[in-house]
Write a protein that binds this DNA or RNA. Sequence first.
DNA 1: TATGAATGAGCCTTCATTCAT
DNA 2: GATGAATGAAGGCTCATTCAT
Lengths: 195, 195, 195, 195
Amino acid sequence: MRDPAKAQRIVEAAIRVFARSGYYHSRVADIAREAGIASGTVYLYFRTKDDILVTLFREKMAEWCALARREIAAEPDPVSKLRRLVALHFSVLEKSPDLAEVVQVELRQGHKFFRGAPAAEVSAYFQLITSVLEEGVAAGRFRRDLPVKVAAKMLFGAMDQIATSWVLGQRTYRLSDSAGVVASLFLEGVSADGV
Amino acid sequence: MRDPAKAQRIVEAAIRVFARSGYYHSRVADIAREAGIASGTVYLYFRTKDDILVTLFREKMAEWCALARREIAAEPDPVSKLRRLVALHFSVLEKSPDLAEVVQVELRQGHKFFRGAPAAEVSAYFQLITSVLEEGVAAGRFRRDLPVKVAAKMLFGAMDQIATSWVLGQRTYRLSDSAGVVASLFLEGVSADGV
Amino acid sequence: MRDPAKAQRIVEAAIRVFARSGYYHSRVADIAREAGIASGTVYLYFRTKDDILVTLFREKMAEWCALARREIAAEPDPVSKLRRLVALHFSVLEKSPDLAEVVQVELRQGHKFFRGAPAAEVSAYFQLITSVLEEGVAAGRFRRDLPVKVAAKMLFGAMDQIATSWVLGQRTYRLSDSAGVVASLFLEGVSADGV
Amino acid sequence: MRDPAKAQRIVEAAIRVFARSGYYHSRVADIAREAGIASGTVYLYFRTKDDILVTLFREKMAEWCALARREIAAEPDPVSKLRRLVALHFSVLEKSPDLAEVVQVELRQGHKFFRGAPAAEVSAYFQLITSVLEEGVAAGRFRRDLPVKVAAKMLFGAMDQIATSWVLGQRTYRLSDSAGVVASLFLEGVSADGV
DNA sequence: TATGAATGAGCCTTCATTCAT
DNA sequence: GATGAATGAAGGCTCATTCAT
């Protein structure tokens, strides 16, 4: 109960195990072995197997949000903020391949994540994107009539799909290399100029 | 194996059951009851529980692709084809809320769908999007240098996220209403004109 | 669900297993093996391990009550009814040593039997004893001022302890031989005549 | 093992916990918490959880026997000794409701108490009852041909059942009030005089 | 002596799958 | 083909007991 470092070790072990086998095919004993502890010990730090997954998600998402907020604040204008956001999204996943696997593939499954408790953490990330868009609208850099909510979801979905493809494709190329293109397309659209 | 109509009934029952409880929390017996048959009968039509999900996905995806291909062919130019594609994506999901639930939420989970056998059907849909984009580039309607693969994934991801939000939000508004906005943003980007 | 004979076989197996190892030290798998079925099958007939014990108790107690009621009805007067009741109590236990072990030793433990659902069946047996006593009072054979409730409990407790001692003593003598003595002492008391 | 007072505290805590939840549903950690110590400390005073129960029973039974022996010795004749014994049996249980709960309900369960180590303490109590009866026979106050062993068991069983009913009935009346009636019925029987 | 985190054996229960009818 | 009772492997979770501090 007392040692947050051990809870952390369990979470990190769970990320590796879930990335390898998927949540439903991972056994608590696997996580324990990966963490170098006995399986009963897991239950000193988490109430259920589910609790591990939820905690994992909330923590990582919160870290991610905090990092993104910090990095974005450093950028001078909405466009560069947006580019920074995309770059960061990809680099976070690229630097933590197991986490990427879990987040992109395992966490989608039903009724647990976008619904339920962790929704707050997801919302925070959407809120971050939304605020960049709103700032851009206010600054006249983005369309005056931009439906920011819809646009935020679209950007998230776009980044997400690019990342998912990369994960499913066994990560054979560098994800970060897509950041510029993705941001540009989101900013400028696919249409040819002057059309 | 004689009666394809019964296999179909099982698939439709599975869609309702998975939508309600999620794949892992649905029991084969639930699907059988929903289909009005005995649980053993399921195994006369499907090898495993997994097979139901995979079949479900392949069939629905193939239907969807066929429909989309047909509808798009009727459109005169790449831009209207793309708009049609987005509208169709949303209207298919809107008309089949249970299917939407399954596709948007359940099918994401690990190691089964975008990987594995059904990947072909997913590819076909991506290919469809890609071909529209390529046609647009060839026609000079889309950027000459458009990275079509990336753009196709982005559009898919954007539509997907909008649909997911709608499903998770208990479908309290009309999804189709978003089609125009989504298509426009994809076409024109978020940037203000002349920037 | 359908075959009461199999449920019965499970109950009978459970009696043997509980008699041998005690309820808490018996595993569901033991009961299944004793019944010659797979352990999962137990759950087609009983909701939980507890349910087996409760059902066992209720059924056996109900049988016992029915038998006792029938036998007692055949006796002409309250005193012979009471003697018959005692004789029957002991002969039932003597003929079913495993059941006796379970009833006398295992069922006493907490919070489950004299409390809870099976209390009704226990009450029925007490009620039977009480009615014999009331009949005797009405017939002038038992004390006019007899506190029948208390006397019924005392008789039950007395028989019960005699039976428990017999069970714990490895059943080295014939329990039925005690019936006459027990009945007589209950009827006449321990005091010397004319005291 | 140095501090017998702490062992005592553990026993007293165990009585409360067992009374509340039953032996099998009580955890060693519960007892430790109730005693205000760490759970490991329990094992400095008792070898196993079972050992606590056995010790509890032996100690309390020994105290009880000693008390009973003392009180009975003060009585002038066998009949008043017997009445005293019954009164004491009930008043001991009445004054210690938690102990009563444990003794009446929890201790019955299998293979541990009337069998096994604590049998000696139980025997001592039976022996005490037996000796009162023998004294009565010798003094001509009880039937010359009284089967003292059987009568002793019957009296114990009768008192026990009265007490059990009281415990299970949530102790809504005063148990001691039954002492006189129980003793009288045991002495005189249920039959009407002159029958 | 005391602690309480750690251990890991143990078991009830579920449910995908089989198969006799 | 259809049934649904039967199977039995599997795994989450508990908790008595140990032991390093």
